[in-house]
Amino acid sequence: MTAHLDSGTNPSAQLPRIGLDEPVHPGGPVGYDQLDDHELLRLHVAGNPDTFGILVKRHRDRMWAVAIRTLGEPEEAADALQEAFISAFRRADSFRGDAKVTTWLHRIVVNACLDRIRRRQVRQADPLPEDEDRAAELAGPVEEDAAEVRERRLDVLNALKQINSDQRSALVLVDMEGYSIEEAAAILGCAPGTVKSRCARGRARLLPLLRHWQTTRGGSDDSDLPSKTAAESVGTE
């Protein structure tokens, strides 16, 4: 077991280890990457100090998407994720093995974001400040995405920032993250009817902000364009 480490000079080679007996690379423990989420979490609960970090790396872009959509501000999203992952780290033993790890993590992240929104609502009744300089930062590193994907992502993030946070939370959970109305109601601590209503009104607010998406998506039927403009005027009257 100690053969992987420089046992001659490294006293810590004698330290207790829990986890896989894998060769050690300078870049980090290998082998863990091949393990599924359940196994990584199980090893973490058993005391392995490395596997939770691998879980975080594996799912952070997914969780970042949830946090940034729900909160709108990168600083807030970063703080919420930090809270969420520390909370998950500490209470990993409460994870029930029959669920997906991502579902569990997702729920913790959503709750951390909602907590921040509630605290923010207590602190200030103002809407979020518009900050155009942030917009590019929100959409992530340039090189990773095609311009179109990036633009769409920015559009939706900016549009979401313009509706109120109750409607935004409901829409992110139901329309974007695929929670059922009942699940979203349980997470948000309100009646299913309230979630439906927030979703409906949120969509009505978003529609004029994102309408240009649909004309590009439809592509072929350009003839719709003028009448869509007319319909928009109906929506905003």
Binding site: A65, P74, V156, M176, L206
Partner: peptide, 17 residues
């Protein structure tokens, strides 16, 4: 269609800075 578009967009990850 907006709900469908939001669902599509929701499936995409966003790279953490």
């Amino acid at each position: 269609e907006l709900s469908e578009d939001l669902a599509d967009e929701g499936r995409a990850d966003i790279p953490m800075p």
